[in-house]
Design a protein around this nucleic acid. Structure first.
Lengths: 203, 203
DNA sequence: TTTCAATCTGACGACTGATTCATGTTGCAG
DNA sequence: CTGCAACATGAATCAGTCGTCAGATTGAAA
């Protein structure tokens, strides 16, 4: 089952070194991109010898996979905290979107690493999105059952909402770093909750 | 002004060769990814000598830029045809989303090439999206002025709507190749036009 | 037919960066 | 204190690509 590479350190010293490499890789890959980031720049940045890298990772791809997993856990934790005890799905939507945008702004390197994963290991990338989509989807279904939202294709909605978050994150948290995130989230939230059609034109 | 590289062929024979290389590059980069695609695999696929590549392009990045521009023109043309004479912005929204999804399904290589551009030449990538966002934005503003849609941040809405299209394209036109695109587009369109909040819960 | 600008070729030099490995160091269990 | 497994090193090796170039070919105008 666990194809877990048997590359895990066995002492706390090793664990620390592994972590230093992971941090450096995050900065290098996130900053310069996967192609530019070489093992030598990563190890130099981490302050360890070149060979040390191979004590804990098989390849550069390996580190990236690890970072995607890390991003997934960290983001999930962050969103859970932010959305936590929302009184309704709609309110959860609002808080979740804002929390995501803030997360992206605070972790641009991780964000970029995940996007690069798409071209390095499609499987892990898709797993990352599938996981979020699935929990998103079931949340929508539950809300629908409670009558909080209009019935509709939960699966499609989940992916559409993720698309909004990702694109707005890219545009307003990565590219335009000083945008007012609450204003952005509010505008998108308004569109999604109320719809584009004016009240006086509904059938 | 025109930094246009002076690498343009001067005869139709040259033009043809250049095109063969461009096509091969689209397949190679779209299929294996930018990093995997080497000049030699591209020229081999195109059926020309290695050196021929440099008659028309400076670098691999150069080809990718060209392909992004190409994708922009082609997609724009496609959307214009599909949305053309819609009776309303809302209707244009519906048709546009479906047309985009179909385009992605029919041109997966081009789609991927554009996404890769993000990590190769951020400038051209951003230009690509900015262009679409701008025309999207002004269309929304016009519709708003006509009272067809509720007032709101057109800029944010434009990016959010693009996010929906991109993500749904990735999920339902690239990953799940036989999804019912009209059904997907309809579901997303319904959410965006009517909103998630049920009519009986609006204040 | 001749000429020549444009086009094409593919082997090759230079270089980059991944991975290995022989050797050295660390720190804890006994 | 000592022995040993874990950890660390970086020079050397190795694979593969880029971009060049000297020479060959094409085809259309003169």
């Amino acid at each position: 089952m666990s194809k877990n590479n048997a590359l895990r350190p066995k002492t706390s010293r090793g664990e620390l070194t592994r972590q230093k490499i992971l941090d450096a890789a995050k900065r290098e890959i996130g900053g310069r991109g996967f192609a530019e980031a070489s093992i030598s720049t990563i190890t130099a940045e981490a302050g360890v010898g070149q060979g040390t890298f191979y004590l804990y990772f098989r390849t550069k791809e390996d580190v990236l996979r690890e970072l995607v997993l890390h991003m997934g856990r960290k983001l999930r934790r962050h969103l859970t905290m932010a959305v936590g005890d929302s009184p309704s799905r709609i309110e959860a939507e609002r808080r979740g979107l804002l929390a995501f945008l803030e997360f992206v702004r605070d972790n641009p390197d991780l964000y970029r690493v995940v996007e690069e994963a798409q071209f390095v290991d499609e499987t892990i990338y898709r797993q990352y999105y599938d996981d979020f989509a699935e929990s998103y989807r079931s949340a929508l279904l539950a809300a629908e059952a409670r009558g909080e939202i209009r019935p509709g294709q939960a699966e499609v909605r989940a992916w559409a909402l993720m698309g909004i978050a990702v694109m707005l994150g890219h545009r307003f948290a990565i590219w335009e770093k000083d945008a007012s995130l609450p204003r952005i989230a509010e505008a998108a939230f308004d569109m999604v909750s109320h719809g584009l059609i004016p009240d006086d034109r509904r059938g």
